[in-house]
Design a protein around this nucleic acid. Structure first.
Lengths: 190, 190
DNA sequence: AGTATTTGCCTAAAGATTTTAGGCAAATTA
DNA sequence: TAATTTGCCTAAAATCTTTAGGCAAATACT
């Protein structure tokens, strides 16, 4: 039996696909080995252990998301940019639910530092350049946007908004309208 | 060896404690058996399987959260109610991270129907009685509030806001202020 | 080309978790 | 006190994780 050509790269990529197909928590070293028609032990030359595999998938997802964000933000500002980045998260989660779940994995400090997390924070902050917010309000707003993006996408994906009258696209549009208004009229500290 | 007095109740309760201590995804039938100093197989008389156990912990968490919400909302309206319910989620997540994670478990339709999910939706809608929102805007607002509550709490818990200048309590307060303003001036469809 | 070395996937094996089946003794009921 | 139910047990199979050591294919060197 010749060599299949395993590599950390390929394993992580296949792991991400597997996650999208069966759910991130069903991603297992064994399942991945089956997918390559290879014995389980063979994977341990390319990946430290199960946790390492999952962390790498999370890092891949975060990087892919950041890449999409960069593209979406290029040449946009204000509400245009807000909508574009918001849609990046929502669309990615719908296209790649397993990867999106992976991106939510709690990373240890080391992995977190090496992750695209910083890029995400910078992208959100870039959006706010189109609005007139000084610190610390800008940070408050960054956190609000992060919360809404993540919260909405995660609830929608989890079916929290199912069986409901106004469809979720409509709500999404109106929420982004509302956030735009809010950012243009950010209430001062009282 | 006599009987320890296992029951579904006690197992689920202990499972919730275990989740808070070691994380929801580390909650395992085996670990629970060890905690009761009992053989693993003994648990299977009280719980169908691992999934059943986890689902029951999720249902417990959702019910506890709803109970706290009821108490918090009693006699409150408007921004007072908004803040009270928001704090219920945030405080619960901080006190019981494992349970909060459990509450995020994706339930199958049957379990979802039997869950306190409906109570949560009703509580959020109750808050909006203090604001002047007709359908479908009310539903949009319900979804926005749910997104912010869940998104913020989940990001804060995951350390997404760490190493940061304005502390998270400050941001939380300002976000609730902002939501209050937004709900009082909900932008019409354009 | 021929040899040496590294690399990649394998077999073997141990430990853990999940789950089912069937048994015996303690608790409950008659 | 006898009969029945109930609760925890032992046994065992299936799956997953992980480590150790082996052999052959790919790569590098003379």
């Amino acid at each position: 039996m010749g060599r299949v050509g395993l590599s950390t790269e390929r394993l992580v990529r296949a792991g991400a696909e597997l996650a999208d197909e069966v759910g991130f928590d069903q991603v297992t070293v064994s399942a991945l080995a089956r997918r390559f028609d290879v014995k389980v032990a063979s994977l341990y030359s390319h990946v430290k252990n199960s946790d390492d595999l999952r962390t790498r998938i999370a890092l891949l997802a975060l990087a892919e998301l950041a890449d999409r964000g960069d593209v979406a933000l290029a040449g946009r500002a204000g509400k245009d940019a807000l909508t574009a980045l918001a849609d990046v998260y929502r669309d990615y989660a719908r296209e790649h639910p397993g990867r999106y779940a992976a991106a939510q994995l709690r990373l240890d400090p080391e992995a977190a530092a090496a992750s695209a997390g910083g890029r995400h924070a910078r992208m959100t902050r870039a959006i706010l350049r189109g609005y007139d917010l000084a610190e610390p309000d800008q940070t408050h707003a960054v956190r609000l946007l992060g919360s809404v993006f993540h919260g909405y996408v995660s609830l929608e994906l989890g079916g929290g908004f199912s069986h409901s009258a106004p469809d979720t696209q409509e709500t999404w549009t109106r929420i982004l309208d509302a956030l735009d208004v809010l950012l243009r009229n950010w209430p001062p500290e009282r």
